[in-house]
Design a protein around this nucleic acid. Structure first.
Lengths: 356, 356
DNA sequence: TTGTAAGCGTTATCAA
DNA sequence: TTGATAACGCTTACAA
């Protein structure tokens, strides 16, 4: 080993030089010839400091490349100005528009948004809730109502208010800004029935721990029941929310006999997958089979034929959720249950079935 | 005022009760009858604590609903296990697949990912870089090379390594995992020319502070030059990356005389917008006009006709970037410049122009 | 307007 | 295996 001593020593010195610690408040204070308190004031309340001092300090901040440590700041100030949001997925645009509006509104109120995703898993969501709270989230946006009751207890003991979006339920444990998934889907399904369809099938996300998916399927069943059709016999394929899954589920449904004449999908992503596969299978939409979606994301209007779907007021929902949450964090409100309308959006992918 | 004294008092007491502070390490220690050091050990190195003690402590943790404070922990441990990523946009899926792979790979190595978006703005990106570093990011993933040199200085003084993705440039200031945007687009444009097109137009993102966009346009120009066509005369519309922008830009291009026979778009989102508008304008694709994209996101294969585009190896890029960054954070590597291949992906939206 | 100094909630070193 | 205790980097009374 002895022969390596020389070179190793050189290397070590270099590393130590590169590892020069980032500048602290203290360094800035020293460079500017003031106290740390003054630097802190300069950064947080510039007008409580003389112009002269401020210039000195700001110059030091710039030349040193100082950046305050969020953790230390949060700890000392007991404030983070941070709100967290946990959405099921970032892989498609389902939540993009709503989250964008949520974020813009938060920004207006001086809050920063931290986003995490749960992959539609309850355990991952719980992990993310803990992580965001630990990181200082003063309030949380969650999607849907399905989750372990222990989480409410946790949020309560942590003093972190939460708002649920994308669902509405008068009896929910948490305040919410959402729409009635069942009623909205029921309206769509009523329209499908009114258009003349009797053999209707559904492609849904897993309903296990997803109240939106569950309610939407229930909405279709309600419509069939009301029309005197056999809701219990209705084929339902549950899968994950992706274009490919939608495609596979569609093929599965269309290889049964008799075939459905209309396939109602739990969201636009599934519906687009279904349309894609229909094309491959040589089936005309809506000539051979009608397909509908839910959400009305941009995708719905890009495919051809354009998708009949349910328009969800994403932006409005995001904005209102942000306002409610900000009020709750400020202690100005307890939060309530706001219901929005998701309205039917009829386009070309729904048409009467071919005469047998 | 006096008559309100009673009720107000009650209200105050209630609020104080609700505002009970979240449990601290100290509270857990007291409840379990041990020191804070032991609780900390229990949480971080369970095996360095006797089974008996551990059970007591964990029970206290659960019943109190304790959750460690990230900021305090980071400060004391000088470690956050957090990596940050700043992508231009979350509004469409351009970065979704790559980021997903990035995150999965990070997770393998025990890191958590924090994501922010810059809206394609250099100043916002800088803000986000500071914010993520302040929040403890030990390494950063950035997109593209265009940014103020001062940022490199900042990252250096903070000791935070960064890796660039989506671009490759041998002379770049930061290590990178990317592909040659110019060469990839050149290959696509060569194909368009070889297919017989002579009147070619481009829809691009703003090239001002986006090296990917700039290089892609340059790639098209190179192809025209090589074919003896007048690259300088080529119509180029710059706009933002959205379906609507693509649609508008397309209409603008198609109302000139003579019309282009092929429209090369800077990415798939723009191309899909163009296709949408073509349909509205009664133009057949590719009969009346060919349209191409870039990225090969799911969208490209969902529209009809399917989009001719350039396939970007998003997942591979994300994974490799993660590995490089983890190595750099650990001090095991300085980071290098890895080049990946983005290959042409020919589908239906490109065909020979109609005979004049 | 500025400075002093006491926390904030953890981890980690050192003894016991 | 456990417990005191000194950091960690910042904000904020309180004093000057």
């Amino acid at each position: 080993m002895a022969r390596f001593a020389g070179p190793l020593f050189v290397l070590t010195v270099m590393l130590m030089t590169n590892l020069r610690a980032a500048p602290k408040l203290h360094d800035v204070a020293r460079a500017a010839g003031v106290s740390t308190a003054t630097v802190s004031r300069c950064l947080n309340f510039p007008d409580r400091v003389s112009r002269e001092t401020r210039d000195k300090v700001m110059a030091a901040v710039r030349t040193l490349g100082y950046s305050p440590n969020f953790g230390a700041r949060a700890m000392a100030a007991k404030r983070t100005n941070t709100i967290g949001a946990i959405i099921p997925t970032m892989e498609n645009a389902i939540f993009a528009r709503g989250l964008q509006a949520f974020q813009e509104e938060l920004r207006q109120s001086g809050y920063t948004l931290l986003v995490a995703s749960s992959s539609y898993r309850l355990d991952t969501e719980e992990e993310q809730i803990r992580s965001l709270v630990a990181r200082g989230a003063e309030g949380l946006l969650l999607i849907g109502h399905d989750r372990d009751a222990a989480i409410h207890h946790f949020l309560q003991t942590q003093g972190v208010p939460a708002v649920v979006a994308w669902s509405h339920d008068d009896g929910s444990a948490l305040p919410s800004v959402g729409f009635d998934n069942r009623r909205s889907m029921r309206a769509l399904a009523d329209e499908v029935v009114a258009t003349g369809h009797q053999r209707i099938a559904v492609i849904s996300a897993a309903t296990q721990s997803n109240d939106r998916a569950r309610e939407r399927v229930a909405g279709v069943r309600n419509a069939l029941d009301a029309a005197g059709l056999d809701a219990a016999a209705m084929p339902v394929v549950e899968t994950t929310y992706s274009i490919d899954s939608g495609a596979r589920a569609f093929e599965e449904l269309m290889t049964t006999d008799p075939r459905p004449t209309a396939v109602i999908c739990g969201n636009d992503v599934l519906a687009v997958g279904a349309m894609k596969r229909a094309r491959v299978m040589g089936l005309d939409v809506p000539g051979d089979v009608s397909i509908t979606g839910f959400d009305d994301i941009e995708l719905a209007n890009v495919v051809s034929p354009a998708l009949t779907t349910v328009h969800v007021p994403h932006r409005d929902m995001g904005r209102k959720a942000a306002r409610m949450l900000v009020d709750m964090v400020a202690g100005n409100a307890a939060g309530d249950r706001t219901q929005l309308e998701a309205r039917l959006c009829r386009r070309e992918s729904l048409a009467p079935p071919a005469k047998a």
